[in-house]
Design a protein around this nucleic acid. Structure first.
Length: 257
DNA sequence: ATGCCGTGTGGGACACGA
């Protein structure tokens, strides 16, 4: 099985590239984030032509997540119980069972700055997500993938000094991610196609991608059984190249299964 | 990064992103 996660930064703006990438990459399951479209506006017919069913959770111009699958798509759950909002819940999580694996696609709140109310919202959102993940882990194989908006270590940003005092690197954020790992989830390490750091995000501005000044903020967490079955995982930096890319690259994972 | 680019909304300037 091959699955992937990708923050596409608007599925409508990215549709031609998404379709090309699906054909070339041929994943069985894809977790998408920042689709920026209401569920009924998702281009489900277009991806269906490539053999994919769609489960989408959207709210319009902001956020939005989805799961595409060509190996079944059952038990769709939008959001999760007790999901915090700002103040109302946003479209940041969707789960479905594909080929007997529960997949959850997440778009964790950005946090903005450590003194912003959105920062506490981010921490609380991750804490409550953990409650659902603990239940899902007890039920069977689990993959949680998406844009976590946290760089777990200093090696996950291009220059730790630049990020001092910023969101994405603070100890409470890193602790929130560690708490998810402590539930029994493994951070699946992805290879970088180029360079030493498997960054998944590069700002659009100032040639950051070409200088490889990025961040590793898109992660794949898997239950132990699935983590042990991983045969390869890679950041597809090719998808960040060329005209009209997302500012995030996909992470592609192969499972012996 | 003191938002230098990109997207959505709406039909221009602004909100948001990490």
């Amino acid at each position: 099985m091959r699955f992937a996660t990708w923050n596409v930064n608007s599925v409508k703006a990215r549709l031609p590239r998404l379709l090309d990438w699906l054909e070339k990459t041929a994943p069985d399951v894809v977790c998408l984030q920042e689709t920026k479209v209401a569920a009924d506006g998702f281009p489900a017919a277009e991806v269906a032509e490539l053999g994919y069913e769609t489960a989408a959770h959207g709210q319009g111009r902001w956020n939005g997540v989805a799961i595409l699958s060509r190996v079944g798509l059952d038990g769709i759950r939008r959001g999760f119980p007790g999901e915090p909002g700002f103040p109302d819940p946003e479209a940041r999580a969707i789960s479905a069972v594909c080929d007997k694996i529960t997949f959850i696609s997440v778009y964790v709140p950005n946090g903005r700055t450590p003194d912003d109310p959105h920062y506490l919202y981010k921490l609380e959102w991750l804490r409550v997500l953990g409650l659902t993940l603990a239940e899902d882990l007890a039920a069977g194989p689990l993959v949680v993938a998406g844009d976590f908006n946290v760089a777990p270590t200093d090696a996950d940003v291009w220059d730790p000094a630049v990020f001092a005092g910023s969101t994405h690197v603070t100890p409470p954020e890193r602790a929130a991610i560690a708490a998810l790992r402590d539930l029994g989830l493994t951070d699946v390490p992805a290879r970088a196609m180029k360079g030493d750091h498997p960054f998944t995000y590069w700002d659009y501005r100032a040639g950051m991608f070409h200088q490889n000044k990025g961040m590793r903020i898109d992660h794949v967490y898997a239950s132990a059984d699935l983590a042990a079955a991983v045969t390869d995982a890679v950041v597809d930096r090719e998808a960040r190249k060329g005209k009209g890319p997302s500012d995030h690259a996909p992470v592609i994972v192969d499972l012996k299964r």
